[in-house]
Design a protein around this nucleic acid. Sequence first.
DNA 1: AATTTTTATTTTGCTTTCTGAATTGTCGCC
DNA 2: GGCGACAATTCAGAAAGCAAAATAAAAATT
Lengths: 396, 396
Amino acid sequence: MRRINLKKANVARADTIRYINRQIVLNYVREKEPISRAEISHETALQRSTVSLIVDELKTQGLIYEIEGESTGGRPPSLLRLRAGGFMAIGADVGTAQTTVAVADLVGRVVDREVFDTYPDVTATYRRLLSIIQRFIKTHANIEGIGVCVPGLVDPETGTALFIPHFKWRNWPLTSELHQATGLSVTTDNDANAAALAELWLGRPEIRDVRDFILVLVEEGLGTGIIFDGQVYQGVAGAAGEFGHMTIGKGAPASCAAGSEQCWEAFASERAALARYRMRRSGTSDPDLSFRRLMDNALAKDNAAKEALLETAHYLGLGISNLTKGLSPEAVILAGDIARVWPLISDELRSTLAENTICSGLPSTPVFASTLGDDTRLMGALSLVLARKFASVVPA
Amino acid sequence: MRRINLKKANVARADTIRYINRQIVLNYVREKEPISRAEISHETALQRSTVSLIVDELKTQGLIYEIEGESTGGRPPSLLRLRAGGFMAIGADVGTAQTTVAVADLVGRVVDREVFDTYPDVTATYRRLLSIIQRFIKTHANIEGIGVCVPGLVDPETGTALFIPHFKWRNWPLTSELHQATGLSVTTDNDANAAALAELWLGRPEIRDVRDFILVLVEEGLGTGIIFDGQVYQGVAGAAGEFGHMTIGKGAPASCAAGSEQCWEAFASERAALARYRMRRSGTSDPDLSFRRLMDNALAKDNAAKEALLETAHYLGLGISNLTKGLSPEAVILAGDIARVWPLISDELRSTLAENTICSGLPSTPVFASTLGDDTRLMGALSLVLARKFASVVPA
DNA sequence: AATTTTTATTTTGCTTTCTGAATTGTCGCC
DNA sequence: GGCGACAATTCAGAAAGCAAAATAAAAATT
């Protein structure tokens, strides 16, 4: 029951009805392929003739194709499948350490990729990014659009990266620059939002069918992406998801990107875990110790590393419990490199969460690790393009 | 860009297009009355002929009527207005102290009301509630539906009140009981959600045009209602909005409904303020001291009462800052009896909020007191019915 | 082997609804 | 009194879905 937004009210045109139904049929093929026209008609309650007409349209647009089906006692159905390779997307994950650019098809299969170390200089990073994208556009056919995710604040209206704390970049008009340079449609979003979108569109089946969930992205800092009713919650100026700066206690082991020692991020992030690890083995001060090393050590049964992870997991659970109380999502997903040591930390995280949710008397929210692995953010960037193709209810 | 929900995908029928446009036109009349057909046509980009047909339909349904307009150099327009009295709604606010039942028109003007002290016994309360509702149905024409709000957890699917902490009522199938007894459509929701809906549909103009905001309802406990994209965020089992149980620190002056002393509610609620007041004047221990008295004393320049309110306001601001960081709403509204002393506490609340949002570098979120006064919750109950009339995009 | 049943898809006539252009209505101003 | 400006209505045409009948193809039955 959504209040109609008169400022951008989309009145229904004669062809709106067809476009809506077309999108519904397309999504049925995407999610339940292989599926017959008859089955789609049955599930949607659209007339069989209508489904046939829509299927014809999707076929001529090259979005789906037919294969032969087995009869179950009558005329054999012709089953429909998504033609994944018909349209391609470029995704770019601009990370604090590395930037990954990839070409993938409609179902998220990467067919080409290139990685480089992100330059501390915006212009240098942008030049390198653009040259790779331009090469991909030349060497691959059917590229429909570009999705980019960055570790910072993005204005959802303009696609400008307002602030990227790690590099202190401000007001980087990424979307308009890339659009002007390539002529393709470009979508830019925060990395946590993009990662959440990736789980929604490409994640494990348990998640794909969930319409309200929270993704917690642990990196140097801590970001959250909120999916509400199958949609990314952006908030004013795209600033939603900054739960990392939620006040959660005092005396954190690290400080957040803005210098506070009370933020959730200061208690639960790679930076926090590293600080804990360093405190535990003050003898060997290794300034270049990376979080990857910390995880490797923990997996190799280094107790200090393990404890640093567990304490971090505890605070992750504490913060997550605050979110689940207030937002009551169907699930919470943990993403970021830390997902690799999920078996080590899951018990601690879940028990903290359980302890802190008794208040409301409801069963505690299930928490999963992301299954998209190292590529969660990249898949997120790609999903920014996919979502347009499948979710839009207004013709382009 | 919302992912299509195949489980309840509503395919577009031939008349869907008309229904959508009808709702858009109806909402234009509601929000911009008096307005001419031509103006609606201009703003929606619907053909003038189409608007005329839709207006005819709305007129015969008794939802709008025409008045004469002034010419601006041509044929004078016939202006359209909402016929508020054409349809009526019953709203019931079941509170911890009192229950208010009222009949109101489509714009929220109350034409009849009755109040009684809520009985600690569910059945007694239900009987009294039902008898008033039945009397209203007999004495008023055109009653379309019933909206009820309760201070507790409500299952949004079934409308069952799962748990009402104050009375320890559990699993009260209010919606189905009232529907069976009256035959009318009944909608039940949590009081904070309903209050948020009231602000969305009937609140001050600054809020009515905002599509993402949070309402903080201060009562004995603390509830939050989240409006996202012009829609109430329910969460699993309607448990969203329980931010009151968010961990915010240690050693609260009171304990929350579930006994914890770390919840936001334990720091910022009527109960917390009363506890602070009692501590400050330990001499006079008045067991029946009410929050209303506390407010009256504060307004009468009783310093202990004032300080108790200010400290409560401080923690309100602290908790609100956590929410604004994560959800980045366009505004926050404070509701509940405490709104009456808004001038006393607004400075403290706003400065705490400002101090605690520097982290993200964004301007701090505006906070308002509810303008619906004592009736916020009642208006919320009524809005549950109104929203159906104006927001639904699927014919009943 | 012929017939019936089952299931799948296509065809055809009808209805709803929007669009666009033309028409009618009403006023102020020259 | 004629003209331009603005408002509302009328009507033919196009798009899309619905319902029911027609066509198609395989499995089950006789």
